[in-house]
């Protein structure tokens, strides 16, 4: 399918679909008055999305993933540096997987 016209059409369609999602929400908000209530809802979205990313990992994770989450929590509690906590969590997962493999 290398550079066949069919693939390029497909790619164009997929690119448009992807960008429609990226720009669509932002564009639609032009027509919606941002009330205080809506602003409160939108401000809570990042936190809720983060819960949505962490929850499945916590619910179906094995020992490495749960260890990783515990390490992130400990690192945050100790230093409150999210980059360091993130890297420590990733390292803990890699080490735990290597040990359990």
């Amino acid at each position: 399918m290398t550079n066949q016209p069919g693939f390029l059409w497909m790619l164009t369609a997929l690119a448009l679909a992807s960008y429609a999602c990226r720009a669509g929400g932002f564009w639609l908000m032009r027509f919606i008055a941002v009330t205080a209530r809506l602003e409160a809802a939108l401000r809570a979205a990042p936190l809720a999305v983060m819960v949505g990313v962490v929850a499945p990992a916590a619910l179906r994770g094995g020992i490495p993933e749960l260890t990783g989450l515990a390490v992130v929590a400990l690192a945050m509690w100790w230093r409150r540096n999210d980059v360091m906590a993130m890297l420590a969590g990733v390292a803990a997962v890699a080490i735990a997987r290597a040990c359990l493999a």
Binding site: P46, M50, V54, A57, L69, A85, M86, G89
Partner: peptide, 8 residues
């Protein structure tokens, strides 16, 4: 996941 947990 780690990034989200830390930022959370």
């Amino acid at each position: 996941v780690a990034f989200c947990a830390a930022m959370l």
